[in-house]
Amino acid sequence: MNKNDAIAFVEPHLTKQRFEHTLRVASTAVSLAKKYNVSPEKAELASIFHDYCKYRAMDEMKRIIAASNLPKDLLLYHHELWHGPVASIKIEEEFGITDHEVKSAIYYHTTGKANMSKLELIVFIADYIEPGRSFPGLDKVREMAQNDLIKAGWMVSRNTIKYLMEKENRIYPDTFHAYNDLTRLITGGNHIE
């Protein structure tokens, strides 16, 4: 699917602000993909569709999760986590997008996971650092993303966990798995001391 078709499909499903965010994420992801030798086309496609289901009715997303092979424990966590996994199913059903890497990058763009691919990391990071966002510490993550994809992903997962803990929100296990795996990659440690 080409970029213009993907944008045309996505735009009616998003608010103006969320659509503009999506375009910025796509631009950021393409830039990172080129820097880290990942397919810019896959990064762009995954980014354009990453929030495709963000404004779907909660009842519809619940039904999709319940009827699919998605983990049922998603339903025990905040509905903000649902749109990535649901979109990974809907883009295949509605547009015939079957590329596993693209679908996985969309699926995990909010939580991350252990053993993320470069493409998954790029969309995860691009969603966080896109130029329209502004909050304390963001410039450090942006700078790191230009030098070290693993460390930037680690910073995103660390900051996300801190933020959710400060809000006293529950944290989906994949987010901890992402943090632990990225920490292992950075420190080189894979054993218990």
Rank of each mutant, 00 (worst) to 15 (best):
K42L: 10
A33H: 05
K34Y: 00
H50E: 08
Y163I: 07
I89G: 01
K103W: 05
E11T: 14
I91A: 05
R18A: 12
E168Q: 15
F19P: 02
K35T: 13
E168R: 15
G188Q: 10
H21E: 13
E143P: 00
E193W: 04
M116G: 03
F124D: 06
S134Q: 10
N2T: 08
R158M: 13
D5H: 09
A8H: 06
M61Y: 03
V25R: 01
S104M: 13
P71M: 06
E93D: 13
A57I: 06
K54V: 14
T98G: 01
K103F: 05
D181R: 01
I48V: 14
P131E: 13
A33V: 11
E93L: 09
R158K: 15
A8S: 14
I91K: 07
I65L: 06
T15P: 03
E20L: 11
P71A: 10
V123A: 02
H191D: 12
K54M: 15
V86M: 04
N180S: 14
H83M: 05
I171W: 07
I89L: 15
V10Y: 01
A126Q: 03
H177N: 15
L76T: 13
S27L: 06
S27C: 01
L121V: 02
S117D: 08
L70I: 10
S134L: 04
P136W: 01
K54R: 14
